[in-house]
């Protein structure tokens, strides 16, 4: 790519990232289309009450309904519909899918990012402790704790927590979907369980530990230490902000996946529970929409992370890599 001298490299870098995100979303839509296209079953026959159609009849009908013969024709018309905000109607409720999904996406958003925050609150202190002290006795216990949280099946630990909660408070911490009033603890319980059980803590601990100890052995940190100034002030960006934002961007899909289970157990009205219901009913417009929306969220988080990265580390915009 020709780099013009007038534009700032940061702006150019971000423009390129926007392009990349756009093409990735096109690719994502292609994958979703490919899955749905190759699914068994004949939608045309379903429209006409399940009768077997001859080739001539099929051709005739496709021309009448304005459906393209080729896969790329169908893909193109599907894509144009998506851009106009038409994600189809739910087979179950008959409502437009996109409206329902965006209505519930807010709840999942709270759940997912709250859980991410909790995970980091648990993982960060452990990682810093391990980076500074190595695996001594307490460090080993913390490390094993991090491993165990990733190995316990989330759906079981959530049930156990509900059980304990009911024993102490005599109420169920579930029922946001049915519109019951819930206090703060009841609202926080699913968020906390997802944060603990989505399985990202152990990997976060390992990654942050390695990054922090790598940065702390660099020359500039040693110089800062020798001068007697605060080490964290100098190493904050490289040892903490960049790895943490990287971790958030790369682990968000896992937390969204865990949200399906937590929403199911705690009766939390979000798109995870909706996806489960849709898969149960084989309501594929709904699940297609949810897949696209979550992929969009993942890509946007990644874009945000890259923006943050290039802001705190302007050198990155000079790198001429081809991704």
């Amino acid at each position: 790519m020709m780099v013009s001298r007038s534009a700032k490299p940061v702006v150019l870098y971000l423009t390129r990232e926007l392009y990349v995100t756009f093409f990735l979303l096109i690719g994502v839509s292609l994958v979703v289309f490919a899955v749905l296209y190759s699914a068994p079953g004949d939608p045309l026959a379903a429209v006409f009450g399940g009768q077997v159609l001859s080739d001539a009849q099929r051709e005739e009908m496709m021309r009448n309904l304005g459906i393209s013969n080729t896969w790329y024709g169908q893909y193109w018309s599907w894509l144009v519909k998506l851009f106009n905000g038409d994600f189809g109607t739910s087979l179950r409720s008959g409502q437009p899918v996109l409206g329902e999904v965006t209505k519930l996406a807010k709840n999942t958003f709270y759940l997912t990012f709250g859980a991410m925050f909790f995970s980091l609150m648990i993982a960060l202190p452990i990682a810093i402790y391990l980076a500074k002290r190595g695996t001594d006795r307490l460090g080993w216990v913390l490390m094993m704790f991090a491993y165990t949280t990733s190995a316990v099946p989330l759906f079981w630990s959530a049930y156990i927590v509900i059980y304990i909660y009911t024993r102490f408070f005599n109420t169920l911490p579930i029922g946001l979907a049915t519109g019951e009033s819930m206090n703060f603890t009841q609202m926080m319980l699913p968020v906390f369980m997802l944060g603990l059980g989505s399985g990202i803590i152990s990997e976060t601990v390992r990654f942050l530990r390695d990054e922090i100890s790598r940065v702390f052995s660099e020359d500039y940190v040693r110089t800062a230490r020798a001068k007697g100034v605060s080490v964290w002030k100098h190493a904050l960006t490289e040892a903490l902000i960049i790895p943490v934002s990287e971790m958030i961007a790369s682990k968000i899909p896992f937390v969204i996946g865990g949200a399906i289970i937590v929403e199911q157990i705690f009766n939390w009205p979000g798109i995870g529970r909706m996806a489960w219901q849709a898969a149960q009913d084989r309501d594929y417009p709904v699940i297609m929409c949810i897949t696209l929306v979550t992929a969009l969220i993942v890509r946007l988080t990644s874009l945000l992370q890259k923006t943050l990265y290039v802001i705190v580390n302007p050198r990155a915009s000079q790198e001429t890599k081809t991704s």
Binding site: V31, V32, A39, S250, P253, G257, Y284, I287, I290, V298
Partner: peptide, 19 residues
Amino acid sequence: NIIDSFPRLILMLLVVAAF
């Protein structure tokens, strides 16, 4: 990057619903 964009469980639910 495309593969990484999908939450696994959601992609599995999509495949389960389609197949």
